[in-house]
Amino acid sequence: MLTLMEEVLLIALNEEKGNFSFTASTCIDYCLTGAILMELEHLKRIRVDKKTVEVSDARPLNNRRLELALHQMDSSKRHRPPDYWISRLRSTLKGLRKGILEEMADKALLREEEQQTFIFFSSTRYPVRDERARKDILDRIHRVLLRREDPDRQTAKLIGLLYAGGILPYLVDKGDRKEAKKRAKEVTKDDILANAVKKAVQATYSNPAFY
């Protein structure tokens, strides 16, 4: 099973070009740090409410990214709200997006390709290799948003992150966007961390068109 972070990236990437749209590129790192907090909450390592994130179990984890995030929160002298930690971890977990993309290429989910941009410069892009995995994720999202099926935990969290990052509207046809947004609001209304991601994004990029 893919991690929540891997699913976010697999869906946010342009399938053929292997890069991110402007909207996805500006917001994706907030979605990734939101996914980290969601995973720590699921593992019962943190307790979350609208005002604070509190570490409940600081023992080492078999995951370096989760462990680094947990250590930062545990070392804090003050309890901070969820949106603070989403923005903070976005700044301190250097190379988060790049590292996960490289791991996904190693798993054959993506292809890693060097692209020449200027005479002396190149960039790396990650076209989707496992098209079936991406399609399966999209199918899960569409069943919840457009057919109003009940989501499992991971799909509900994924929808929350994609909605918070302004990416969700681009995953459905134009005529379905109003219904998809309405359903996404229903699914995520009580999700403290998804709404904290949304708050962190809005604080940085005041774009009401996202929502």
Rank of each mutant, 00 (worst) to 15 (best):
L146C: 06
F22H: 15
Y30E: 02
S206T: 15
E67C: 07
K50S: 13
K94Q: 12
R64Y: 10
G165E: 15
T155E: 03
R111W: 03
F118D: 15
D176E: 13
E149S: 09
E102N: 14
N63I: 00
K44N: 15
K77Q: 13
R65S: 07
K50A: 12
T3K: 04
R134V: 05
L171C: 01
H79K: 15
D74N: 12
L162R: 01
S56Q: 11
L93M: 08
A58E: 14
P169A: 14
L43V: 07
L146A: 02
A108T: 09
N14F: 07
G95A: 03
E131C: 06
A200N: 08
A184C: 02
Y126N: 01
T3W: 02
V172S: 04
E16M: 06
E186H: 07
K51E: 06
Y170H: 14
L161Q: 00
S75K: 12
V187K: 01
K174Y: 10
G175T: 04
G165P: 00
D130E: 11
L10Y: 01
K17F: 06
Y84I: 07
R143V: 06
R90W: 01
T204V: 14
K44H: 14
M1V: 09
K189P: 05
R147V: 10
K98D: 08
R183N: 00
H142S: 06
K199F: 11
K135R: 15
K44W: 11
K98T: 10
V187H: 05
L101A: 03
R125P: 00
I100E: 00
M73A: 03
E179I: 13
C27M: 11
K44F: 14
S56H: 07
L93F: 03
D106P: 00
V55S: 04
A180L: 02
L158M: 03
R59E: 14
R125Q: 09
S76Q: 00
V48Y: 01
L89F: 04
D190R: 02
D176N: 11
H42S: 13
R59F: 11
